[in-house]
Design a protein around this nucleic acid. Structure first.
Length: 197
DNA sequence: TCTACGATTTACT
DNA sequence: GTAAATCGTAGAA
């Protein structure tokens, strides 16, 4: 079952945990690619120094984060990788959940086709920039409505045990001062597709 | 306009 | 382990 608008109208912090184990569906040119979300990070609005929309910074790029929950926030990092985020909370409250890693479930041949020179299957989607390339996600999907649309959306998964979820500090945000060590990164314990231990 | 740099990946030594 | 790739965005000038 597709996640409803109501699901997305919550804090990125709780949504990040609940998104673990759900299924990301990508329909592209008649093909369906399905993957399970195994690693997320929460970026929580104006007060979070690691968040692009920190201090309500409203620019061309961050404008997407101010949209109503359920939209996709895609941006280019280091000039060569895209990152996929799920916008949460009500309109004008800039929360988002970064999808850091997924596990291929269906359409793995298409994923392999989108990525070349891969050593093992585990390297296909175990990083934010890797999975966007694997799923054919780019700036065209920035601001995409995942509740109304059918090219990209999320399906409900089986509930996870609390003990199967690992909570740690987020990655590569040394610039975020006291927010650097907030345990706002979550992943499924012992899953081989997470980006790093 | 101009400059610095990043929610990273990859290929090196 | 280290460094190169590569460019839009943000903030300063």
């Amino acid at each position: 079952m597709k996640l409803s608008r109501e699901f997305y109208l919550q804090s990125a912090l709780t949504a990040a945990v609940e998104l673990l184990g759900t299924y990301l569906v990508r329909n592209i040119s008649g093909h369906s690619v399905i993957s399970k979300i195994v690693e997320t990070e929460a970026y929580c609005g104006p007060g979070d120094k690691a968040c692009h929309a920190c201090n309500n910074r409203r620019t061309k790029r961050t404008e997407t984060m101010f949209m109503e929950g359920g939209h996709a926030y895609v941006y280019l990092i280091y000039g060569l990788n895209h990152c996929l985020n799920i916008v949460t909370e009500r309109k004008d409250i800039p929360h988002a959940v970064l999808i850091r890693a997924v596990e291929p479930v269906q359409g793995i041949d298409i994923i392999k086709n989108n990525r070349q020179l891969i050593k093992s299957v585990h390297d296909l989607t175990n990083g934010p920039g890797k999975l966007t390339k694997a799923l054919g996600i780019d700036m065209d999907l920035n601001g995409y409505d995942m509740v109304e649309g059918s090219e990209l959306f999320i399906e409900k998964g089986l509930p996870l045990k609390r003990s199967a979820i690992v909570k740690t500090a987020r990655v590569n945000i040394d610039y975020a001062g006291e927010y650097r060590d907030r345990p706002w990164r979550f992943y499924i314990k012992d899953n081989p597709f997470v980006s790093r231990k």
